[in-house]
């Protein structure tokens, strides 16, 4: 879901119009949902509110059915992940009929941004001298944390459906681990530091099929290659960490080979 400046001022969901709620801030606008930042219960507890407005083009019964089912499905998946220790935002409240879901606010920046800050200063060519390899450890560590997070997700039987580096947040470590390292180096290390939190489960499904897991990994691999071509070779670390985190990984990786060969090209008939 790409974000664009809203063409018009949107009507707020009713829950955000109550005088007690903190003035909402529109964070993102996608094709079918809007994300607001507001607070939950107390004004010091920030939260994210995902709102699926009703679509006038759809039949009202179909619209209500879809909105309700999608909010419920997303909440169920998040709840399941939370219970099983997958790093996702906790669900605070929801009103499926009203089309909204309130979640824990995740601080930090998307992984995409962190990686881009890290890569920012590097020369274009991919040939990295040996001396620089050690220098890459923080980025490799990040790849490992991504692999662990996805491994934990698949272990619980959840398929994300839209794994990209934009749908993962980097929540800064308390106190910051780059203490003691100062200057530009420290800044760059800080950019790729933090816990990986998976977000946006709008397309998530529950499945235990290797095929679905492999497609999930393939989507991430493709997104990674197109978003961070210069870090593409480090993607193997994601798969390595995935194998460590998830014991049925080998058969998924095997399936991934098939999915890669097939791509998403379907030959057309008729």
């Amino acid at each position: 879901m790409a974000t664009h400046a809203p063409p018009v001022e949107f009507a707020l969901p009713q829950v955000l119009t109550y005088p007690a709620s903190t003035p909402p801030f529109l964070v993102a606008q996608g094709a079918e949902g809007r994300l607001y930042k507001t607070t939950h219960i107390t004004s010091s507890r920030p939260c994210a509110l995902k709102y699926r407005p009703s679509k006038s083009y759809r039949h009202p019964i179909l619209d209500a059915r879809l909105t309700k089912a999608r909010i419920q499905a997303e909440a169920k998946v998040l709840d399941r992940c939370c219970r099983e220790g997958v790093p996702v935002p906790a669900v605070y409240a929801l009103d499926a009929g009203g089309g909204w879901l309130m979640m824990e606010w995740v601080d930090g920046v998307p992984v995409r941004q962190g990686i881009n800050v890290w890569l920012g200063e590097r020369p274009e060519d991919d040939a990295v001298p040996d001396a620089e390899v050690a220098d890459e450890t923080p980025l490799v560590d990040l790849m490992n944390r991504i692999g662990e997070a996805v491994g934990a997700l698949h272990r619980t039987g959840v398929i994300h459906g839209d794994l990209t580096t934009s749908n993962m947040m980097l929540r800064p470590w308390a106190g910051g681990q780059s203490n003691g390292v100062s200057g530009e180096d420290g800044e760059k290390k800080k950019a790729v530091g933090g816990d990986v939190i998976l977000i946006d489960f709008g397309l998530a499904t529950q499945s235990v099929a290797d095929e679905d897991r492999a497609v999930d990994l393939y989507v991430l691999e493709r997104a990674f290659a197109s978003t961070h071509p210069r870090a593409e070779r480090l993607f193997t670390h994601v798969l390595e960490a995935y194998k460590q985190a998830y014991k049925k990984a080998p058969s998924v990786i095997h399936k991934l080979e098939d999915v890669r060969m097939r791509g998403r090209k379907k030959s057309m008939l008729g």
């Binding site: 879901m1 790409a2 996608g30 094709a31 079918e32 679509k55 759809r58 039949h59 179909l62």
Partner: peptide, 18 residues
């Protein structure tokens, strides 16, 4: 109503994407 809602939804997603 059902199949056209699906078509409009995927079209809207592509429009948001590009």
């Amino acid at each position: 109503e059902t199949v056209f809602a699906m078509l409009v939804e995927i079209t809207e997603r592509a429009m948001a994407h590009v």
